[in-house]
Design a binder for these strands. Structure first.
Length: 306
DNA sequence: ATCCAGGACATAC
DNA sequence: GTATGTCATGGA
């Protein structure tokens, strides 16, 4: 079925820069394809699959989205489902102006990143399992390599779905699929030594040893402890999943870039450990810590400050 | 060629 | 708690 819908300004809290957000590479999941000026992605919604193509019209400050949906269901409308999903993935209900207002007037250090990043939003991954696997694949890996690997996982092991316009798209594989993939076969995606981490994580999800719904209900500390019980998941990858997979915005993944920039901007370059930086960000920024991490990261790389 | 990637883990003190 | 070596490839 083919549908065209819109998300209007009233449904978006504050500014939005769709392109900057989608291209910021934050969730570690495959980047949306660019087709005829529309950014395109797809997801399964309880057996129905929809590809949605999203384009921003009007300005950053008065954002408005056009969405073109193509599904594999000839009868049911997926308009409402896809609208909710897109609003969720792009975190359109996060009040960005409230974020700016919370720190700009006070002249907080993070506010110096605002002018060049207006409308940049945190994202959420397509679904928790995909987010978990993508997060694990990033450790000690480069952006180009893990992006390639995660795309290959999807296109090699994920189910192919034929849409009503005759096109075929690949969804990310389910836990039971990835759990039973042989290590040798998964290695063809270039994950190297992370391969066994991925399979083990998929197996634990499949067998219920890691319950993603339960993690969603857990508080930050509890969920993080459970996650770090998995091989290959340390504090940074756990925070990535908590932030992008579960939407826990107090999580601030501290990678080498955040470590450097926070030491430089907040501690006069002093040698502060990664753990302390993560804790510092959580305590100072609370529910905005994830946003602060996002803004500091792009500010640091854009200005080549570190 | 040779260096390193948006870390994790073991081992060392 | 903090410091150092290792991990396995592909891409720059």
């Amino acid at each position: 079925m083919h549908e065209e819908i819109e998300i209007s300004r009233e449904q978006i809290l504050g500014p939005l820069d769709l392109e900057a957000t989608l291209l910021s590479g934050q969730t570690s999941e495959p980047q949306w394809d660019l087709v005829d000026g529309y950014y395109s992605d797809a997801e399964d919604f309880g057996g129905r699959t929809a590809r949605y193509r999203v384009r921003q019209i009007r300005t950053r400050e008065e954002p408005h989205l056009k969405i073109v949906i193509t599904s594999n269901d000839e009868n049911a409308s997926l308009a409402r489902t896809v609208t909710d999903h897109v609003a969720n993935v792009l975190r359109l209900r996060d009040d960005l102006n409230a974020f700016y207002q919370a720190f700009d007037p006070k002249g907080d250090i993070v506010s110096k990143t605002f002018p060049q990043l207006i409308g940049l939003r945190l994202m959420r991954g397509n679904n928790p399992f995909e987010s978990l696997i993508s997060s694990i694949s990033t450790q000690h890996n480069s952006i180009v390599l893990w992006t390639k690997s995660v795309r290959l996982i999807r296109d090699t092991f994920g189910p192919a779905v034929r849409l009503s316009d005759g096109s075929t798209i690949h969804l990310f594989p389910k836990p039971d699929t990835l759990a039973s993939v042989r290590e040798h076969d998964l290695e063809t995606t270039g994950l190297t030594y992370r391969t066994k981490y991925i399979i083990e994580a998929a197996r634990r999800v499949r067998d219920g040893e890691l319950n993603l719904e339960e993690l969603q209900r857990d508080n930050y500390e509890t969920a993080k402890t459970k996650l770090m019980d998995l091989p290959g998941i340390g504090p940074k990858v756990a925070d990535c999943f908590l932030l992008y997979g579960l939407g826990k915005t107090e999580a601030a993944p501290v990678d080498i870039w955040i470590h450097r920039i926070v030491r430089k901007l907040y501690f006069q370059g002093a040698n502060v450990s990664i753990d302390k930086v993560a804790k510092f960000l959580r305590e100072r920024y609370g529910p905005w810590a994830g946003y602060v991490q996002l803004y500091l990261f792009h500010y640091a790389r854009k200005t080549r400050l570190v």
